[in-house]
Design a binder for these strands. Structure first.
Length: 443
RNA sequence: GGCCCCAUCGUCUAGCGGUUAGGACAUCGCCCUCUCACGGCGAAAACCGGGGUUCAAUUCCCCGUGGGGUCACCA
């Protein structure tokens, strides 16, 4: 009960840290922080061929960005070989392992095999209860490619024992290999940790989440405009829930609420739609300047975008027309590409018949536009509120659609846009009046 | 195929013997509204099948079916 919780972050730098790994790390993190324990960061790079330092850097960047800090490490298994060798020698001395003559491919090479006692192992899993597996089928499995090249199962076990790991929280794809590791722990005289095997995250096709399903690494999600807090929030909900209807959590709230007992045990499929909705919530919570900075990053990326960003009322544009409309920041790029901001940069060439609201006559429309022009001309304080105040009573009297539609269409030339008051405000008084007069003359 | 894990709306899930089976995302409808978006309201939508146990099963047990995982000198 008073035992200090020690867990680990054990990515293998043989590929990108993907969302499934990140979720496992997150659950380790939440559990450990909740119980005031320590997290050991450890790169499992015993496969020299496939390990790459690039992946280590990406993994560290991901943890940093998501705020998943650890307490010890990062260690590298490739730098701890002597510990595994010593364990290996101990096992061989005790005749719990042996040098086997055969080795695939190269004749004359040896491998080290574990002398499997061929017994049935039962271990308790916090999430699934007792799991019993007969290890006979594993045979005398290989624990080292050679005297100085241990294989995953050995190095993990040696490290977990030495680092005092108390809780192993990982994906359920490791269930089957758990008995193998327990066998080794017993042979080495270590204490078997507590296990918790998390349900896998699958794609919409129920298969293990991978590239073909879309974004899978933190960096990909970041580039799409998802924020770290939303990713953490959403990932926590994949397999865990607080037991009530709450869905929005900060990292600290998650630490407070989290428990492995409430992790469910069936695979969860990743929903980009749901992530969008969570992300929307989180970006709405962002401080304004931070929000502006993010939009700028996405919107001002190219020459045309830069022009828009140089627009006098950039901040107002974001606050008034963008903030409520996006789920993720990359959407401002698509909005821009779809021409939704064209009216800001280019005066429209409005088609006459589209200026008319329903069956309103050109004469009446011209009259309304004339009135709008006169009213706006008198507005001295050019704010959305004052503009609306100048137009609204007249629109109410004469039919909102008959007045507002031609006004908005004259200003934007688009059937869909923000409301005419906001549009007029963003264009500035002079430009707005110019466009309205131009439309009036068309009628 | 052997072994292991899993099974509630399309999706994420609540439920831990007795509920009108609840919420969220998505979908659809209505309202708001000059359009779009936002917002509000509402609708449709699920217990894989068969046996037990029980006064009573979505819930407990067994079998089947389905899905997934794992069977490396990868982790």
């Amino acid at each position: 009960m008073t035992e200090k919780v020690i867990t680990r972050f054990p990515p293998s730098p043989t590929g990108s840290l993907h969302i499934g790994n990140i979720r496992s790390l997150l659950f380790n993190y939440l559990y450990t922080r909740k119980h005031g324990g320590n997290i050991v960061m450890r790169f499992e790079d015993t496969d020299k061929e496939r390990s790459d330092k690039v992946h280590e850097a990406v993994a560290l960047e991901t943890l940093e960005a998501l705020g998943l800090d650890f307490d010890r490490g990062p260690f590298r298994q490739s730098e701890r070989t002597e510990k595994y060798v010593s364990a290996l020698n101990t096992l061989i001395e005790k005749d719990l392992a042996f040098v086997a003559e055969e080795s695939e491919g190269e004749p004359g090479k040896h491998v080290i095999r574990f002398r499997n006692p061929n017994k049935t192992i039962t271990f308790h899993d916090i999430i699934r209860g007792d799991i019993t597996i007969d290890t006979t089928g594993f045979g005398d499995f290989v624990i080292a490619r050679s005297e100085d090249s241990p294989v995953y199962h050995l190095s993990v076990v040696v490290d977990d024992i030495e680092m005092g790991v108390t809780h192993v929280i990982r994906g359920e794809d490791h269930i089957t290999s758990t008995p193998r590791q327990i066998l080794l722990i017993e042979a080495l005289g270590g204490t078997v940790p507590t296990y918790a095997h998390l349900p896998l995250i699958v794609g919409s096709d129920k298969k293990k989440l991978g590239k073909r399903h879309g974004a899978v690494t933190y960096q990909e999600f970041r580039d799409l405009g998802y924020v770290p807090s939303a990713i953490v929030n959403y990932l926590a909900l994949l397999g865990w829930n607080p037991g009530d209807d709450r869905e929005f959590f900060t990292k600290d709230e998650l630490i407070k609420e989290f428990s492995l007992e409430r992790v469910n045990n069936s695979p969860a499929s990743f929903s980009y739609k749901k992530l969008d909705s969570i992300n929307r919530h989180h970006i709405l919570q962002m401080p304004e300047d931070e929000y502006l900075g993010e939009v700028k990053k996405f919107l001002c990326a190219n020459a045309e975008g830069e022009k828009l960003c140089a627009f006098v009322n950039f901040e107002d544009l974001v606050k008034l027309v963008i903030r409520e409309r996006i789920n993720k920041f990359s959407e401002v790029t698509s909005m821009f590409a779809a021409g939704e901001f064209d009216w800001l940069l280019h005066a429209p060439e409005p088609e006459v018949d589209k200026l008319l609201w329903k069956d309103t006559s050109p004469e009446n429309t011209r009259k309304h536009l004339g009135h709008v022009i006169d009213s706006l001309d008198k507005v001295s304080n050019w704010t959305v509120d004052d503009i609306k105040e100048a137009i609204w009573p007249y629109a109410e009297r004469n039919g909102r659609g008959e007045v507002l539609w031609p006004m908005r269409f004259a200003l934007t030339g688009q059937e869909k846009s923000p409301d005419p008051f906001t549009v007029a405000f963003l264009l500035g008084k002079e430009e707005a009046l110019t466009r309205l007069q131009k439309a009036e003359q068309l009628l």
